[in-house]
Design a protein around this nucleic acid. Sequence first.
DNA 1: GTGGATATGTTTATCGTTAAACATTGGCGG
DNA 2: CCGCCAATGTTTAACGATAAACATATCCAC
Lengths: 357, 357
Amino acid sequence: MARAKRATLKSIASDLGVTHTSVSNAWNNPAKVSKELRDRIFAHAATVHYEGPNPAARSLRTGRCGAIGVLFNDQLSYAFTDAHDIAFLRGISSVCEEEGANIVLIPLKDKHPERLDNLTAIVDGYILNAPYKSHPTIRKALARRLPTVVVDFDAPELPSVLTNDRAMMREVVSHLLTLGHRHIAIVTFPWSQDHGEIFTLGHDVSDENHVVHERVLGCRDAFEAAGVAPDGVLVCETPNDEDGGQRAVDRLLRRRHDLTAMVCFSDRLAHGVVARCQALGLSVPRRMSVTGYDGIDPPGRPSEGMKLTTVRQNAFEKGRKAAEALLCAPVQAGTPIRIAAQFVAGDSSAAAWELTE
Amino acid sequence: MARAKRATLKSIASDLGVTHTSVSNAWNNPAKVSKELRDRIFAHAATVHYEGPNPAARSLRTGRCGAIGVLFNDQLSYAFTDAHDIAFLRGISSVCEEEGANIVLIPLKDKHPERLDNLTAIVDGYILNAPYKSHPTIRKALARRLPTVVVDFDAPELPSVLTNDRAMMREVVSHLLTLGHRHIAIVTFPWSQDHGEIFTLGHDVSDENHVVHERVLGCRDAFEAAGVAPDGVLVCETPNDEDGGQRAVDRLLRRRHDLTAMVCFSDRLAHGVVARCQALGLSVPRRMSVTGYDGIDPPGRPSEGMKLTTVRQNAFEKGRKAAEALLCAPVQAGTPIRIAAQFVAGDSSAAAWELTE
DNA sequence: GTGGATATGTTTATCGTTAAACATTGGCGG
DNA sequence: CCGCCAATGTTTAACGATAAACATATCCAC
């Protein structure tokens, strides 16, 4: 059975012997149509299952669609495992609910590069979350020149929401240096799409990923301020999950077994690092200090287990501000919105001298 | 400075002295355009910042837009706090990544009922997650008669993904009855938009929310099978979060202080119930048995704390199947896809006789 | 040299709206 | 009775694309 053709403004208009503009007005400018006609229109619309103007056609005509696109650095299905990204989305949602806007989640088209040209999202603007500078999907989104807000991304020409990653990382490393640690390694998630190497802090860091770049610089700042040569500090790049953290421990210890502290760029990495250290018999924090980043309270019950030394980010607020900048009060490009993070000393870091002596 | 007018197929065509169809083909049917012309087109497109055909116009013409809409029962910003919903979204995402489809999250338009008529989402189809039968946004979505897959919803005329809630709940209650409990109460999240009452299992249950309906019936089954009168079983409706669980304890104990077990319809509720019981000096499970639903491993580290007696759902798989049904292999309406849940006995339930004696 | 496929473009109609400008009518003040 | 405004419709022109049918040239087989 062939699906019956859908009713349109025009078909309703001709059914009723009026012009389609009047039918359109029944929905969009009720004041311009007599109550009597409006009732007739709605009544007839109901019988032919007409559910209001076709949104694609309206969007074409008006140039707006009432939705904002959100792009993540990684696979979407990854984002939904990351407490930071989830809180960020929650922040966006809270604004979109108030404004009545829809959210379009756009998977990176890694598996379908050909669709880059074909299926671009129907959105009024974009929020780009910590994007890789040169990722094709990101570039494509930027190239469309729609209103765009970037988060944790260095783009002076765009409105942006930024955190104080560099200063926070400086604080974390200083914390460890103050505790007497001198053999510290860094565990980071990938700073570009292809990853896996071990570097040292002496290397120049690509700014492909602004977050990693800032945090690495923060670390270097602290080491240099303490007179520690950056060349001696290992930086291990690894996938951002517990398993990645676990493997980083092995890779790092293979190079330097005298490490007494590991600075992780996410709590997930830190959890993996802690787990692997304990499995190797290196107690945390007595034998190995570990720090995280994000400040994810392990849901369930909070106060259990070891409290990670970490940096608490306000991902929810990041999302809110980004969405507000896009939907409510347009923000100037020159002045980024700053969301301050906060250093939290926990139980996973302790003085180093007990073992280095 | 007025924003320069955007280039279109037509403007590019006339710039180049060809027809706009050829320009369109350069993107959509490359084989139909000589390589030489295609290069000229792309080159010129780049200089005028043309980023490919306008998606709204294309969508109007082709009738497809490459996105699916997802609707939740509750506020979107709530969904992002609920581990079940997040896993569900992750399942949908994993399919959308493979298929290159976008996901449109549609907030319930509670705060903007007037936008119901105005801003309908531009999507090729819907996934409705455990929707309230009569919620206006849900009804509106259904009324559009786009391809739709419902999850945990009773709609024989639509393809659906269902779980075995009723059987699982029967198992939970039987478990408690077998342990000797006779004074059991039920803690549920709201079964309609307005909520808050305490009922008994003797009451008829609205099927406004299919999940609650099925679970309540499952409980009743088990009580009846054991010869316990449903009239004596209290059912407390409360917001689906820890606080809601906490308050439910107070409300229930005020009515019946001889309760020895509380059956919760979500793990979040159960966590609140456990917390409140312990605060009241009622140790779990010695003095009070508590069961949950969902099987959310408290992230962070799994094996810590008390293991809740619960039902493990596979929300990820629910999401995957729903998305597959919509995007890949269209599913027949008559035969729901079943995702089995699994009863998990934990440490939060124990024999009752120690205290009822 | 005839006929038919292949490659490359063009013409024209259409998708379903909204917005601006233009008609028509009735009411009302002066 | 004139003129103007408000109320209610209508006419017409986009919005920016895609698809089907049609035109023309080229090539090759037989």
